[in-house]
């Protein structure tokens, strides 16, 4: 196990390098020079400022040297300063935004697994019945409806017409003076819509995957044997089949994260949630290169960590495992 862990962590190194390399390449595809943006909003920026910035980003050097410099800055957790007029360190800007995005997505992830697995099992057990079809249509509708449209419709229905839930933001005004209980309840109320919609949209992939794995397991010989022996159907499904069907699902855990984080751009814009997705969108539109590069790297690293955790869970759950996937 320890061996596996070390091996798995060593594997992260090339992946991390690859992530930075791809981020760097993507940003340098863009026409124009980052420094022009940095000095653009300050019309009187002197030639000296410009030169200083060029030097800081090493823009006078060949690309591979620039990449090396950026990498060595990164290794010291120095993501540079934002090109936005506030000129703050990128890391500060990301740090204050990341907790809300992570917690939102983790809750959505938990709900996704909590709902998609039972739904998938149900569909597999009642395979090819009306229930199975209904479930598949339901989860696919969730996937197929453009999220911002559904979000607006729900905001209008629950926020304006029924006035049950707040429309946007994450806190009510003045909530800082409430007791802890009410503050938490307030936060929860604000998150009901974004999280439900995010979860609804992500059910399809996982539940269909669960369904097909379950069907596969249920057609295995040992299940047939168990049935022949007269073991009750419930026991077969929940004790024998489920255990084996769940295993491959764990690896999916890590991969669900990037999809959810990607969707946070839309959610955070429409629900005015001050998270990383919103920040990224602003950064991209304003060509705030250090910010965009910072978020890309951090976003990818989050997934990396998610995958690592998923693999570790898998290793713990399945003692046969000796090495990682691939």
């Amino acid at each position: 196990m320890a061996n596996y862990l070390i091996k798995r962590i060593l594997m992260l190194v090339p992946l991390l390098l690859g992530i930075t390399l791809i981020t760097f390449t993507v940003i340098h595809l863009a026409p124009g020079e980052p420094v022009e943006m940095a000095t653009a909003m300050s019309p009187k920026a002197s030639a000296a400022t410009r030169a200083r910035l060029r030097e800081f980003y090493g823009l006078d050097k060949p690309l591979h040297v620039q990449y090396g410099m950026w990498l060595s800055n990164l290794s010291r957790l120095d993501f540079g300063r934002s090109f936005a007029p506030d000129n703050r360190p990128v890391l500060d800007k990301i740090k204050e935004r990341i907790p809300i995005t992570i917690s939102l997505n983790v809750i959505a992830l938990i709900l996704e697994f909590g709902l998609a697995l039972p739904i998938g099992i149900m569909a597999a057990v009642h395979r090819d019945t009306l229930l199975d079809r209904a479930i598949s249509v339901f989860v696919f509708v969730g996937f197929a409806v453009p999220t911002f449209w559904l979000a607006l419709l729900c905001m209008y229905l629950f926020g304006v017409k029924l006035a049950w839930l707040p429309i946007s933001g994450i806190h009510s005004l003045g909530s800082d003076q409430w007791s802890f209980f009410w503050r938490t309840a307030d936060l929860a109320r604000h998150l009901v819509l974004p999280i439900s919609i995010a979860t609804f949209g992500s059910l399809a992939g996982l539940s269909r995957y669960m369904r097909s794995t379950m069907i596969e397991v249920l057609s295995q010989d040992y299940i047939t044997t168990a049935r022949a022996k007269g073991v009750r159907e419930r026991v077969i499904i929940y004790r024998h089949a489920l255990k084996n069907a769940l295993l491959p699902v764990i690896t999916l855990l890590g991969f669900s994260l990037p999809a959810l984080i990607g969707g946070s751009v839309i959610f955070e814009t429409i629900f005015s949630i001050p998270g990383m997705g919103q920040l990224f969108y602003q950064g991209v539109m304003a060509r705030d290169y250090p910010l965009v590069m910072g978020i890309l790297v951090i976003g990818a690293c989050l997934t990396l960590i998610g995958n690592l955790l998923a693999d570790l869970c898998y290793a713990v759950a399945d003692p046969r495992i000796r090495h990682g996937r691939g």
Partner: peptide, 14 residues
């Protein structure tokens, strides 16, 4: 700060 105009209008009504 409400980045979307439709959201802002709903906030006004609510």
């Amino acid at each position: 700060i409400i980045p979307d105009n439709s959201t802002m209008y709903m906030e006004l009504k609510a």
